[in-house]
């Protein structure tokens, strides 16, 4: 475990906790895309099947359980909680799941390391994670009015992706640990999706004004 990986995992954890805390304490999911949250739940459910087959470390297992638990809780809150669900803006969150899920499924069937169920699901989850933030970014751009917590959530997620790339570079040089090129490409694509958001996030932070994305 290197510092980039640890910092990446911690920002990832913080992003999820920020979102859960926001929803739980202010009982509102305004500005949060249910589509993105459902896609993340699907990402974790397909990727972490290995908790049943492989043991890596207690840290690894605990983190996987947290990500699974938190993503499904968030979906539950938005769909089922009687107060939270009222704040969900269904009209604005119109991105279609299958628009992202189907291409990722096809891509996983075409480009993968090994043709096994577990490996295909893992590859699918890598592709899907790369694009799962899109409904959230579209929603932010549409509503423009971004509250602090939602802004921080997206910022922390972007930070997590950037730190993972540094982690791969570090691991390559120190451990000769090769991350498969599928992971590299998906990771880079995912990080680039945040570039635009980062730009406006830092601008608003520098100028000390409320974060607003251009329409």
């Amino acid at each position: 475990m290197n510092i980039f990986r640890l910092a990446g995992d911690m920002t990832h954890l913080a992003s999820v906790l920020v979102l859960l805390l926001k929803i739980h304490t202010i009982k509102s999911c305004a500005g949060v895309s249910l589509k993105t949250q459902e896609l993340y739940a699907l990402v974790f459910a397909t990727r972490y099947l290995d908790i049943f087959t492989d043991f890596i470390s207690v840290y690894n297992t605990v983190m996987k359980l947290i990500f699974l638990g938190s993503s499904f809780s968030i979906v539950w809150y938005i769909r089922r909680h009687k107060i939270v669900r009222r704040s969900y803006d269904k009209e604005q969150d119109t991105f279609r799941h299958y628009f992202l899920v189907l291409p990722c499924l096809l891509l996983a069937l075409l480009i993968h390391e090994k043709f096994t169920v577990k490996e295909l699901l893992w590859t699918f989850s890598i592709y899907l994670e790369a694009v799962a933030i899109l409904p959230q970014l579209v929603l932010l751009q549409r509503t423009r009015n971004i509250d602090n917590l939602t802004g921080q959530y997206v910022f922390l997620l972007g930070a997590y992706r950037s730190l993972y790339i540094l982690n791969w570079i570090y691991r390559y040089f120190t451990e000769r640990h090769f991350v498969h090129w599928i992971t590299w490409i998906a990771g880079l694509v995912q990080t680039l999706l945040y570039a635009d958001f980062f730009y406006y996030y830092f601008e608003s932070w520098k100028n000390n004004v409320k974060l607003q994305l251009p329409a």
């Binding site: 990986r5 890596i56 470390s57 690894n60 983190m63 996987k64 982690n167 640990h177 090769f178 498969h180």
Partner: peptide, 10 residues
């Protein structure tokens, strides 16, 4: 072929 991609990340 050596095992290069151990999936120990999250």
């Amino acid at each position: 072929e050596e095992e290069t991609d151990v999936k120990d990340e999250l």
